[in-house]
């Protein structure tokens, strides 16, 4: 069942507001990964505000769906989502990357409520998600495990070890979403280390596969709905995205992979991300 026009608009508005939160956080911190945070906002919004079963006031609820952010450098986006969902006060966002903060440079499950797994070293997340999916199946729990991967994850061999194992064990309760923004730290992915044909790779490994526009919330939501259907094999959504989405100065640029916006850029971002209409959604 697809989203109504109004539901799409509501999620779009959340995404818009979260983009501002992310830019503010990064600018305040003075460091962090802008491009890969902005590219996956719609993916996280659809997950946390539409598809995942979770309880922000009970972060360790045993029956919750889980998310493993394998591209841990996208932490600012996840933190903005978790704060908005109510896992911790929004004021914490201003303490990103500060000594003693609950918001580390990369996700730390021991410090941040709502983080299901620590990450930061690319390529390990899908394996951990497999472990959770296997465990849930062992306990006969009807929960789903999601893992958001980046281009870099596609270059790490361990991801393909995990892909092989997930198919071998028939993990129908596992959904991977690839934030395919095509730019990495040193430049365009195709120049650094080509990962295409991505769809064919996943299919060859025995996964159900769907390709979508990762910034179209209706598409993202439909795809997540599709992954949660009963299946004997794991599912992957290849979400075509734009690195730095929403920031004219950062879109598609490797130079903003691991760089925070300056003060002037923050001002510009506020203008670019301002609401297009008066209407403000709760």
């Amino acid at each position: 069942m697809g989203l109504s026009h109004q539901e799409v608009e509501e999620l779009q508005e959340i995404a818009r507001q979260l983009r501002i939160d992310i830019v503010e956080m990064l600018a305040k911190a003075g460091s962090g990964h802008t491009g890969g945070s902005m590219s996956m906002v719609e993916i996280l919004v659809a997950l946390y505000f539409r598809h995942m079963r979770h309880r922000p006031h009970e972060p360790c609820w045993p029956d919750r769906d889980r998310l493993v952010l394998s591209k841990g450098h996208g932490a600012p986006a996840l933190y903005a989502v978790l704060a908005r969902a109510g896992y911790f006060p929004r004021e914490e966002l201003s303490r990103l990357r500060v000594l003693g903060s609950i918001l580390q440079g990369h996700p730390d499950m021991a410090k941040t409520p709502g983080i299901d797994f620590s990450s930061g070293s690319i390529g390990q997340g899908l394996s951990a998600a497999c472990g959770m999916a296997l465990a849930a199946r062992l306990d006969k729990k009807d929960l789903r495990v999601y893992s958001v991967l980046g281009d870099g994850d596609m270059q790490e061999g361990q991801t393909w070890e995990a892909a092989m194992a997930a198919a071998h064990y028939g993990l129908g309760n596992l959904s991977a979403i690839v934030d395919y923004n095509r730019v990495q730290s040193d430049g365009p992915v195709e120049e650094v280390m080509e990962i295409s044909p991505l769809a064919a790779k996943w299919q060859a490994f025995g996964w159900r596969m769907m390709e979508i526009d990762g910034h179209n919330l209706a598409d993202v939501s439909d795809a997540l709905e599709w992954t949660s259907g009963k299946a004997e094999s794991p599912s992957v959504v290849i979400a075509h995205t734009i690195k730095g989405k929403g920031l004219s100065f950062a879109e598609g640029k490797a130079s903003y992979h691991g760089v925070a916006p300056s003060k002037a850029e923050l001002e510009q971002a506020r203008k670019e991300l301002a609401p297009k209409r008066e209407r403000v959604v709760r």
Binding site: P62, R66, V68, M109, D116, F117, Q124, S127, A128, A129, C130, G131, M132, A133, L134, A135, A136, G157, Q158, E161, A162, M164, A165
Partner: peptide
Amino acid sequence: AEQNMLATAAGMAAYG
């Protein structure tokens, strides 16, 4: 696939 094995075990432990 030892790398996957150790991290899968980590996911199992995170689950409980």
